[in-house]
Every structure is written in structure tokens, then in C-alpha cells.
Simulated scan of single mutants.
Amino acid sequence: MSKAKLTRDTWVVVTDSEKALFLRNLTDHADPNLEIIGSETQDNPSDQAQSANRPGRKQDTGPGQKSAMEDTDWHQLAKERFAADLSDILYKKAYAGEFDRVVLVASPEVLGNLRQDMHKEVLARVVAEVPKTLTNHTVRDIEKLVKQELDAA
């Protein structure tokens, strides 16, 4: 990707695997001013809280031997589904013409999951990716950190 700037109306989507914050730049790259325009969250309890049973067991080749079977990690599965859900949300908003440019801010793992699920309509509007987890930062901190990352790219 070429060197991206935070132009007026560029969206910045800050996400992890359980929540996303949608921001819009009201000014320019020299002095970004991000406004919150929406958010998405997912209720994702720990895997232990979501699991109903003990892991299953299967017969081994030896007499009277059994092996435990790996149980589904529901917590991890929900995290991966959140990226797919977020990709769908971004597609609907792009298709509706709500944004022309977007900067994605997420951990490398979440960026990979998003990229995998993202529609070409949205991918064409991604001007930059910032591989950092900033979901627990203030909007002012996000403005500074995203600008620094884009300047350094």
C-alpha cells in the first residue's frame, strides 16, 4: 500500500476480536480529529463458561485404553466469527456508500482474519492497515498513534 494520509471523511476502524470502534476523520492528516460514528461488541464468555461437557473420550488400540478428544474452543471460534461479522458490516456500509477510504487498526491476527473474510468492495477502499491493538485507548491517543504509524509507513 502506498503512503496513506488521514484525509477528511477517512474512516478508521479500531478492532480486536471482540469489539470494534468506527471513527471518521473530521479534518486532515496534519491534525486528525476522529469522531466516533459507531461501535460493535460481542459478548464472548471464556471457553470454560461456554463449554457444556467434559471433553469426549475414544477407544484406543490397546486393551482398556481411552484417549481424550480435543473439545471445541468456543471462545476462539467466536473471535473468528466476529471478524467475519465485522467484514459483513463493512461491506454493507461500503455498498451503501458510507465511506470511500478506511484505515484498519487491529492486531496482526485480527487483520489476517479480516482480510480473509473481506469483500473486494471493502478491500478496494482500505488505504492502510495498522497492526496494533488500540481498542482500550482514548480517541485522542488513537488519533496520535494512527498518525504516527501512517507517517512512519
Rank of each mutant, 00 (worst) to 15 (best):
V13P: 11
K5A: 03
T72L: 15
R81E: 07
K93C: 05
N25M: 01
A20Q: 09
G112L: 03
I37Y: 05
L114N: 04
G64D: 11
S107E: 12
D141T: 10
N53W: 13
V126R: 10
P45T: 08
V130R: 09
P108H: 03
E149L: 02
Q50K: 07
A94K: 08
P108E: 04
Q148H: 12
Y91E: 14
R57M: 09
E98I: 00
L150C: 04
L77Q: 15
P55V: 02
L104I: 01
T10N: 02
A96E: 12
T133Q: 11
D9P: 03
R54N: 00
Q59K: 15
Q42W: 09
A78Q: 14
N44P: 01
S107M: 11
L145M: 13
E109Q: 13
D141Y: 00
I89H: 12
K19E: 04
L26M: 05
D151A: 07
R8M: 05
V127P: 03
A4I: 03
A4N: 04
A152C: 09
A124N: 09
S46D: 11
L86F: 05
T133N: 13
V13L: 15
A4R: 04
D31G: 12
I36M: 14
K144F: 06
E18V: 13
N136V: 08
K66D: 13
E129L: 06
